Simulated assay, not measured.
Amino acid sequence: MKSIKWISILCAIMLIIAILPLPIGYYNILRVVIFLGALFVGISNMGKTYWFITFLLIAIIFNPFLPIYLKEKSIWIPLDIISAICFIIIGINISKQKENQNQESSDESDSLQRDKIFNK
């Protein structure tokens, strides 16, 4: 779970930076990182069909092996922003899930401590 959060943050930051006019080398690296990140996040969310399909589409768009050439930066900018937002949302959802799990486990340990007191 923690690795998905960090991958999501990295991908979101790289996509936001991609809005700037940069050398072609950055965009080549971006394609590889986003493709791998989207595959990893998508596969991690296979149980959630909506997120799986969303990240599969992101992986297809940024695919470095059979690249989609949209030619104009004005077309790529909205795709970069939308993709970054998706990565941010999934990162936030993972953080919330982790907080809920931590809270549930602390509630469980509290009840176990209370039981230990009663048992003595």
Rank of each mutant, 00 (worst) to 15 (best):
K2F: 10
K2S: 14
K2E: 12
S3C: 02
S3W: 13
S3I: 13
I4M: 15
W6R: 14
I7H: 02
S8Q: 08
L10F: 14
L10C: 10
C11N: 14
A12Y: 09
I13M: 12
I13C: 09
L15S: 07
L15A: 03
I17W: 11
A18E: 04
I19C: 09
I19E: 09
I19W: 06
L20E: 12
P21T: 01
I24Q: 07
I24D: 09
Y26T: 00
N28Y: 07
N28M: 09
L30G: 02
I34D: 02
L36C: 07
L36I: 12
L36D: 01
G37M: 01
G37W: 02
A38W: 06
A38D: 04
L39N: 11
L39E: 00
F40D: 01
F40L: 04
I43Y: 05
I43N: 06
I43Q: 02
S44M: 01
S44K: 04
S44A: 08
N45G: 00
N45P: 01
G47A: 01
G47D: 07
K48V: 01
K48G: 00
Y50C: 00
Y50N: 02
Y50K: 12
Y50R: 13
W51C: 00
F52E: 00
T54D: 04
F55Q: 01
F55Y: 07
L56D: 03
L57Q: 05
L57T: 10
I58Y: 06
A59H: 04
I60E: 06
I60S: 04
F62S: 00
F62D: 01
N63Y: 06
N63S: 07
P64H: 09
P64S: 03
F65I: 14
P67H: 09
P67S: 04
I68E: 03
S74V: 12
S74F: 05
I75T: 02
W76G: 00
I77W: 04
L79E: 03
L79S: 08
I81E: 05
S83L: 03
A84E: 10
A84S: 15
I85D: 05
I88G: 04
I88V: 14
I88L: 06
I89C: 13
I90E: 14
N93C: 09
N93P: 03
I94Y: 15
K96E: 13
Q97E: 13
Q97F: 11
K98F: 08
K98S: 10
E99D: 13
N100P: 00
N100S: 10
Q101K: 14
Q101L: 14
Q103K: 14
Q103F: 12
E104H: 07
E104Q: 15
S105E: 11
S105L: 12
D107L: 11
D107N: 13
E108D: 06
S109L: 12
D110N: 09
L112C: 00
Q113L: 06
Q113Y: 14
R114N: 07
K116H: 05
I117R: 10
F118M: 02
